[in-house]
Amino acid sequence: MEILVASAIGVLSAAGIYLILRGRSFPVIIGMTFLSYGVNVFLFAMGRLSVDRPPIITSDAAEYTDPLPQALVLTAIVISFGMTALIVVLALRGFLETGSDRVDEGIPKLPEPAEERLTS
C-alpha cells in the first residue's frame, strides 16, 4: 500500500507541475487541481497509513489512527475546492473579456475604462 500511495502522490504532483507550466489557463487550472489532490493524499498519509482502525481515542480501543491529518485534509479540501471554483470563473471572465486564454503573454495593456477616472 505504501508504494501505491507514494507513487500516486508522486504522479499527481508531477502531472500537476507539468500542467502548471503550460501556457494556457485551462491546463494550469487542471494542474493546480492535480497538485491539490496530491497534497491532500500526502497530508492524509502523514498520519501514517493504517487500515481498519478508528480515528477516535477511546479507553477500550487498542489501536487508533491519527485523527488530526483527517481534519487537516478536510480543511484543505474545502479551501482548494473554493479556490478552484474561483480561478475557473476568473479564467473564463478573462477569456471572455480579452479573447485570449494565454497566461504567458503578460497582462493586456488595454485602455482603462472611462469610469476608471476616479473623482476623489
Binding site: I20, S25, V28, M32, M83, L86, I87, L90, A91, R93, G94, E97, T98, V103, G106, I107, P108, K109, L110, E112, P113, E116
Partner: peptide, 15 residues
C-alpha cells in the same frame, strides 16, 4: 472594479 487588466493580473495572482 473589474476590467481586463485586473482579470489578467488576478489570474496570475490567484495561481
Amino acid at each position: 472594479g473589474g476590467g481586463p487588466r485586473r482579470l489578467g493580473a488576478g489570474f496570475q495572482y490567484v495561481a
